[in-house]
Design a protein around this nucleic acid. Structure first.
Length: 457
RNA sequence: GUGGAUAUAGCUCAGUCGGUUAGAGCGUCGGAUUGUGGUUCCGAAGGUCGUCGGUUCGAGACCGAUUAUCCACCCCA
């Protein structure tokens, strides 16, 4: 046997069924984005490496897919560099482009590059694949889609609120039960400041992010290992153990870190956001989670994360505010806030919970069986009329056995089959079969068009 | 980058202590039924047991290497 073909690891094919379901998710997200006034843009799959490198930390750089220069890419490499075997230097010589790692950095580049054509605040959405060279595992791919919505050029917390509303709306429409977790980097900074470890904020946030996964004791151990003082760990403990309503948590937190300026600002922001949320009355549970940290280091204000209640798959959506993302591209002082829906994980959750409605499958509505040349000639004008009326219709291209044609219709999940053979045509009618119930009725072509273009669609 | 597991038909997997000719279910194809699918019955096709080497009279099974895949960690959507 020939070698079995395959796709690169972490990548996937999508069948017609999978695609109609994926499009159901994409369409829902797109509709909600547009409902809130976001406009669509696209950026290239590849970016200059100079745009991407250094934006995702040292780890991130390793996870970038690099594209080999075209032509004689080894031509410019000297003996010296080859002998050195320094991968990073060598990479710079033979690759100057990479596949995008997320949609936020290309968007920042876009904003800087097109600043004269954009009127701020700029609300954009973008639904495109991104690539990461990490090791795939459950719910984790090397090629996956992100659905991002960001607002840049506005500091208002109304934007944060709008994003929470959109999260709520999207998951309401998809019928996925979620918890929206909210936190604020400024509060985390305040905490770090108060326990006397202000410059260890990254280590601290990364560690406490794991709280619900590995427990308090392990978090403390990790903090100590990273060199955070025992005194600081002791001080941190009561803050991590805060309970109660959001207002109660904030009250206690204020006592604990109120003397930190940045901490106080954070508390204020969260209060304002929750006040807005109070007006919006979202269906999903929105809660303040002080242990929510999120990895991306560019967040400076609010951070969001969405988890599916009934499935264990990690976060299916997340985002936050970044005060100065465009600064690295030479455009300081532009604040942005955004969210990203992980369509692939949402798909996995919905599959697991069987949440896809039947209508999510897009297929032919009616198939005309093929009885031969004479019947074809009679059917084709009827099919044209159906299509004209917006009914997805087709005729089986071969005059195969009826059984075979029926089987094909069944597998394609066609809703109706029309049989117009010699008998029916003699009466000027067709036999319409409902594939779900098996019922058949003899109708005229006019009735057929009326029936199929009717309510059902 | 670190650790663990797996690899047998298109798919999911069984294969006992190393012993004759490699097993099932599902799927595919054909037929029962030349104008009726999703249910039933009958039949058929489909395998270099991931690859290379070793142990042995004998290897799908044991050992080594290699490749691929999956899972977990790190990190993340």
């Amino acid at each position: 046997m020939a070698q079995k073909p395959s796709v690169p690891k972490g990548t996937r094919d999508f069948s017609p069924l999978e695609m109609s379901r994926r499009n159901y998710i994409f369409d829902t997200i797109k509709t909600v984005f547009q409902l809130y006034g976001f406009q669509c843009i696209e950026t290239p799959a590849m970016e200059n490496l100079s745009t991407l490198m250094g934006k995702y930390g040292e780890e991130g750089d390793k996870l970038l897919f690099k594209i080999l220069n075209s032509g004689d890419f080894a031509g410019g490499v000297g003996e010296q560099e080859l002998l050195e075997r320094n991968s990073i230097r060598l990479t710079n010589l033979i690759s100057e482009k990479g596949l995008r790692y997320d949609l936020t950095v290309p968007f920042a580049r876009y904003v800087v590059q097109h600043r004269n054509d954009i009127s701020f605040p700029f609300k954009r959405y973008q639904i495109q694949p991104v690539w990461r060279a990490d090791r795939p595992q459950k719910g984790r791919y090397r090629e996956f889609y992100q659905c991002d919505a960001d607002i840049v050029g506005s500091d208002s917390l109304l934007n944060e609120f709008e994003l929470v509303q959109m999260i709520d709306e999207v998951f309401k429409r998809l019928r996925v039960n979620v918890v929206v977790k909210v936190n604020n980097r400024k509060i985390l900074a305040g905490i770090a400041e108060m326990i006397g470890e202000a410059n260890r904020i990254t280590d601290i946030t990364v560690a406490i992010d794991k709280l619900d996964k590995i427990g308090l004791e392990n978090v403390n151990m990790e903090l100590l290992e990273k060199g955070v003082s025992a005194e600081a760990v002791r001080k941190l403990r009561p803050i991590l153990e805060l309970t109660g309503t959001t207002a109660e948590k904030l009250g206690q937190l204020e006592k604990a870190i109120g003397s930190s300026l940045v901490g106080q600002k954070g508390i204020q922001e969260v209060r304002t956001l929750f006040a807005y949320i109070g007006y919006g009355k979202p269906e999903a549970k929105v809660e303040l989670d002080l242990t929510l940290a999120r990895g991306l280091n560019y967040y400076t204000g609010a951070i969001f994360e969405v988890k599916a209640k009934d499935a264990q798959i990690g976060s299916i959506s997340g985002g936050g505010r970044y005060d100065d993302l465009t600064g690295i591209f030479g455009m300081p002082g532009v604040s942005g806030v955004g969210i990203s829906f992980g369509a692939d994980r949402i798909y996995d959750v919905m599959t697991q919970l069987e949440l896809f409605p039947e209508e999510a499958v897009t297929t032919t509505k009616v198939l005309f069986l093929n009885f031969g040349k004479a019947e074809e000639a009679w059917c084709l004008p009827v099919i044209s009329q159906l299509r004209g009326a917006g009914v997805p219709s087709e005729i089986f291209p071969e005059a195969d056995k009826i059984k075979k044609q029926m089987m094909w219709a069944d597998r394609k999940q066609v809703a109706y089959v029309v049989m117009a053979g010699e008998q029916e045509i003699a009466q000027g009618k067709v036999n319409l079969k409902d594939m779900k119930t098996g019922d058949q009725q003899l109708v005229s072509p006019e009735e057929l068009i009326r029936l199929l273009s009717d309510v059902h669609s």
